[in-house]
Simulated assay, not measured.
Amino acid sequence: MPSSWTSSLRLEQQFTGENINTWGDRLNVALRHADQAVAGWLTKPLTGPATLSTLNGADDEARAATIKFTGGAGPFTVTLPAVSKTYLVWNACAGAVTLTTGAGAAVTVDPGDIVWASCDGSAVKTPGYGGVSIKDWVSGVAWSYNAGNLPAQAGNAGKFVRTDGSTASWQALSTADLTDYAQAVKGLALAFAVAL
Rank of each mutant, 00 (worst) to 15 (best):
A64N: 00
Y181R: 13
E61M: 10
E18T: 11
L178S: 09
A50P: 00
A176G: 15
L42Q: 08
D136G: 00
T77K: 08
G158Q: 14
G148D: 08
A73S: 14
W5P: 02
V97M: 05
R32C: 10
A191L: 01
T66R: 09
G17V: 00
Q183C: 01
S118C: 11
G17L: 09
V138C: 00
V115L: 11
T175D: 15
P75Y: 06
T108C: 13
V124A: 09
G102R: 12
G57C: 07
T163D: 01
W90H: 13
A142P: 00
T43P: 00
D113K: 03
P49G: 01
S8Y: 07
T47K: 03
V107W: 12
V97W: 03
L46W: 07
W116F: 07
V29T: 15
A176H: 01
Q171N: 09
G187Q: 12
A94Q: 06
D59Y: 06
N91I: 08
A172P: 10
A117P: 04
S7P: 14
L27M: 05
A37F: 01
A117T: 06
L188T: 02
L150V: 08
G40Q: 09
V124G: 01
T100N: 11
T108V: 10
G112E: 08
A191H: 06
V97P: 03
R162F: 14
V38W: 15
L52K: 06
D164K: 15
L150M: 12
G102W: 15
A105I: 00
L173F: 14
T51S: 02
S122C: 02
W143N: 12
F192V: 12
Y129W: 01
S169Q: 12
G128M: 02
A123D: 11
N91F: 14
N19T: 05
N149H: 10
T16V: 13
A30P: 02
G104A: 04
G130N: 06
L80W: 03
A62Y: 00
Q171H: 08
L9A: 14
A157F: 12
T16K: 15
A65H: 15
S133P: 00
S7Y: 15
F76N: 04
W90G: 13
D113Y: 07
E61D: 10
G131A: 06
D113Q: 04
A189G: 13
A182P: 00
S174V: 11
V141R: 13
A147R: 02
A168R: 12
N156S: 09
L190G: 01
L11F: 02
